[in-house]
Design a protein around this nucleic acid. Structure first.
Length: 476
RNA sequence: GCUCCCAUCGUCUAGCCCGGUCUAGGACAUCGCCUUUUCACGGCGGUAACAGGGGUUCGAAUCCCCUUGGGAGUACCA
């Protein structure tokens, strides 16, 4: 049987990192098996779903490199791929179940239902639907519908236990009476998640359902529907959830939870893929740094961990830095251009300058956005008043170096102090002024950059315009 | 409340299914040292975990039970 998996987001917000992770696992499994990934938009909640979010989520998926084979924008044999466009199909199957006596119309009002539920809770009974409308005959029900009543459709839950075989959880048994007769079709005619999910997975020939553990309990209902529909069961894998540091479900107060935010913070998509994969899944050879393509050949459903994983920005940062270092200088130059914009000092420099700048700071930086600070440092003429710097400038050798460098800069003719020129100055200070060791190196650094640490001066000084150097020394 | 799921360093995890090779391995973070006359990168090393209690067994991180803690579901949300 050919492998067909799906990612089924609800377009009610930005793509969540948890959602991205399940999309990723589905993608990887499809690739690993030579199967297909289907994108199905679950927009039956008309109130909250929007086309904008749908678009945005698809963009984020594309940014991560998770291409799918069939979806709203990529029609295949099993469309449409938007659930809201499939209600006729859902209704058809619902009617089938009603006719077979496996589901029934329910005319109970909202008020009645909440009253019953509250009573049940008070009496410590399960707040399940009590089955009032279970025995209304189809003929009678149709008569009431003709008279204008707007019923919903409930599934008649069989009195038995169900067992689920799950790739992550193992065998999970749901005892009988765990759920009451649940709603399949709302009174407004829209089908409910648990029902259309099954109908669509069945019709779209989904072979493996890989999704978050929050759906584990739902699976019971879905098992019942598969059975009622006499549809073959897909295989299931319920992946553990992502949580915040406090072990609570990831939410806004934990910081950025949408893929979009990381994109804007200049995180690398490859790093995001790498890190997200690692949260709840482990490489057979315990590798921790990899890219999508490498994963495609080793991904398997038997290496998931069962417990929820804390999303840790610290490790994500490390991984991002590693991926950044893998990139060519050319790619980094381009990416940084986009981030810093066309009116920055960076854009104003020559392309040689830009690649030297990128290459010089590449080992220091974890994110592209961190280049901004380094850029500002190069063009800044201010002195940081730090204790360490004050100490350096306080050495008796420092004023001598300062005077010498001032003279040199005053008579210097050119835009850029090359590394040879810089070395010549350094040699002069060493040989003629007899300053060496720490006072030499730290003195030169402190005076020329206004900082007590930074990159190699031989590379940093040639990046710094002479005018900036002159101003700095003037400001001392 | 009821039902389901989960439990190894601070964090992500390997090991668990198929008990001994585990004085529990790796990674991030952290600390120290080396390297770089700074910083970073890199290298080396340290601190740090089988939730608790009962079984089963010659032997348990690994199998069973209970307790505790966490999560999810119990919707005309998905």
């Amino acid at each position: 049987m050919s492998v067909r998996v799906r990612f089924a987001p609800s377009p009610t917000g930005y793509l969540h990192i948890g959602g991205a992770r399940t999309a990723l696992y589905n993608y990887l499994y499809a690739k690993a098996c030579g199967g297909k990934l289907i994108l199905r938009v679950e927009d039956t909640d008309l109130e909250r779903s929007t086309k904008e979010y749908e678009q945005l989520q698809m963009q984020d998926l594309a940014w991560l490199g998770l291409e799918y084979d069939e979806g709203p924008e990529k029609p295949g044999e099993y469309g449409p791929y938007r659930q809201s466009e499939r209600t006729d199909i859902h209704k058809k199957y619902a009617m089938q179940l009603v006719e077979q006596g496996k589901a029934y119309y329910c005319f109970c009002s909202d008020e009645e239902l909440t009253a019953k539920k509250e009573l049940a809770e008070k009496e410590n009974r399960d707040p399940h639907y009590d089955g009032t409308c279970r025995n209304i005959t189809l003929v009678e029900a149709q008569k009431r519908i003709e008279q204008g009543e707007k019923p919903l459709v409930r599934f008649k839950v069989p009195e038995k236990a169900y067992t689920l075989k799950d790739h992550v959880r193992g065998e999970v048994t749901f005892p009988k009476n765990m759920v009451g007769d649940f709603v399949m079709i709302r009174s407004n005619g829209m089908p409910v998640y648990n029902f259309c999910c099954v109908v669509d997975d069945y019709l779209m020939k989904i072979s493996h359902v890989i999704r978050g553990e929050d759906h584990l309990n739902n699976t019971l209902r879905q098992l019942m529907i598969y059975e009622a529909l006499e549809a073959p069961l897909p295989e299931f894998a319920h992946v553990s959830l992502l949580v915040g540091e406090d072990r609570q479900k990831l939410s806004k107060r934990h910081g950025a939870t949408s893929v979009n935010m990381y994109k804007e913070d200049s995180y690398l998509p490859s790093a995001m893929v790498n890190y997200l994969t690692l949260l709840g899944w482990s490489h057979p050879e315990e590798k921790e740094l990899f890219n999508l393509t490498e994963l495609e050949s080793v991904f398997a459903l038997d290496r998931f961990s069962k417990s929820p994983a804390v999303f840790d920005l610290e490790k994500f940062r490390f991984i991002n830095g590693q991926h950044l270092r893998e990139l060519s200088d050319e790619k980094c130059v381009e990416a940084v251009s986009e981030i810093l914009g066309s009116d920055s000092n960076y854009a104003a420099q020559s392309s040689e300058w830009r690649s030297e700048f990128i290459s010089l700071f590449k080992e220091k930086v974890h994110f592209f956005s961190e280049y901004k600070g380094h850029l500002e440092d190069i063009f800044s003429t201010k002195y940081e008043s730090s204790e360490a710097l004050t100490e350096i400038l306080g050495w008796e050798s420092s004023p001598i170096i300062l005077t010498y460098l001032k003279e040199q800069l005053a008579s210097f003719d050119g835009e850029i102090v090359g590394s040879d020129q810089f070395s010549a100055w350094q040699d002069h200070v060493k040989k003629e002024l007899k300053i060496k060791g720490k006072p030499l190196f730290m003195g030169m650094r402190g005076i020329l950059t206004g900082k007590n640490h930074g990159s190699d001066l031989k590379r940093l000084i040639p990046l710094t315009p002479v005018s900036v150097l002159r101003d700095r020394l003037q400001n001392l």
